[in-house]
Design a binder for these strands. Structure first.
Lengths: 219, 219
DNA sequence: AAAAAAAACAGGGAAAACCCTGTAAAAATT
DNA sequence: AATTTTTACAGGGTTTTCCCTGTTTTTTTT
């Protein structure tokens, strides 16, 4: 650990919890400096000093006025160098994924041991992130869900021409232009249109395009 | 660790590497049983015994005839209980993400210390997965890339009604139905259509839907 | 209060998409 | 070789989308 103090700031609407965290952080050793604390995102915006940005910000998800998501989003845009460690009671996959996608460097439960909080801050300082097994598990699970969802198409038998037609339909070409490009008559294309509409259960070309994009049949 | 041996199988086209791995695994302690080894995915399909499935399969990405992806995909479908640990020289984000999405429980480089291989097998056996910091980093990075890509829309000034229209247009409603639902005349909707077409540079409703989905303006 | 800008609406027409029913040729089955 | 299935294609009509040129009403600015 270097001789420069790690600068930390906190955003959490529960004063008692916030004060507790601060005392915990300072108890560990004196290599951490608390820059400021805030009740919510708006206060963060006012209290943050561009000339002395925190290295790490501990942020809660649930806060009044401006919640954790909005706060992280704002930080990402205005002070991207600030590394965010979420500390929240909320542990559901959706919140975790949303925060990870916003670029947070760690996500802890509020009932972890003080030791783990220390480890998290140390890891984020040294290698840039700290994801527990729980978080990693959620992350991977979510990815696989997406993928599984995107593969029900294998259940619907579509031949090569139909798949090609679907890809072509996900564009601004007219059916007449698609016919040209596939060397088929517009009437044949109309036949493919009808058959894929029925197979996929869509009622319009827009519906088809949406279905295809959502299910990875076209990019 | 229980008294039942952990059953392991390997798929890698490099015989020497495979043999080395086996000796390493058996050297650790005698709690591991090697069920079989295979040159590629096809051999896995033939050698695997549904009555005595491996707990963990070590699989390489690059293999002739049937590669790692196809092998994992096959295992996922036919023997989902088999936990896959990828061991490969390939370490790029795309391969890693593809394998993770296929549900592999770990991904190691071929030049890790034997100690880490041991840890990985132990972790997968006990808690179900083993992702190194490197893999976790790639995972999170890939997620954030996706999200960043999906947010350039803020650059184009669209008012609330236009955004609502775009969402509605990403459906199978006709413009007349959209007009009803937004309590506006079809002719007004036609005006919104023209203005968003121009702002987003699209030429048809399908083009609009594709643009909106790709840029996160509609789900 | 007047001027300017934005939002809502309209007529009308051409092009594209949609949706029937039906036929001819090629390919696969038997 | 005969039959069935699949693929390719057509006529013709309805609806929807697209696109042009406007007017009226509401909101914002000065």
């Amino acid at each position: 650990m270097s001789n420069v103090k790690v600068k930390i700031a906190l955003a959490d609407d529960h004063t008692l919890f916030r004060k507790g965290m601060i005392s915990l952080i300072q108890m560990v050793n004196n290599s951490h400096e608390i820059l400021f604390e805030a009740d919510n995102g708006i206060e963060v915006q006012h209290k943050i000093d561009p000339l002395s940005l925190p290295d790490i910000m501990l942020i809660d998800v649930n806060m009044p006025v401006m919640d954790g998501y909005a706060t992280v989003d704002w930080l990402k845009l205005h002070h991207p160098s600030v590394k965010v460690l979420v500390v929240s009671m909320i542990q559901d996959e959706e919140s975790i994924m949303r925060m990870i996608k916003l670029g947070v460097k760690g996500y802890l439960s509020k009932d972890v041991e003080p030791e783990e909080l220390k480890n998290a801050i140390a890891a984020i300082t040294s290698k840039g992130f700290y994801y527990t097994d729980y978080i990693t598990g959620k992350l991977v699970h979510s990815l696989q869900q997406e993928e599984d969802y995107a593969q029900k198409d294998a259940l619907i038998p579509l031949n090569a021409k139909e798949k090609e037609f679907i890809k072509m339909a996900c564009s601004e070409f007219t059916y007449a232009e698609i016919a040209q490009r596939m060397n088929l008559s517009p009437k044949t294309i109309d036949g493919y249109r009808l058959s894929v509409f029925e197979k996929l259960g869509v009622k319009s070309r827009v519906g088809l395009a949406i279905y295809a994009l959502r299910n990875g049949m076209a990019r």
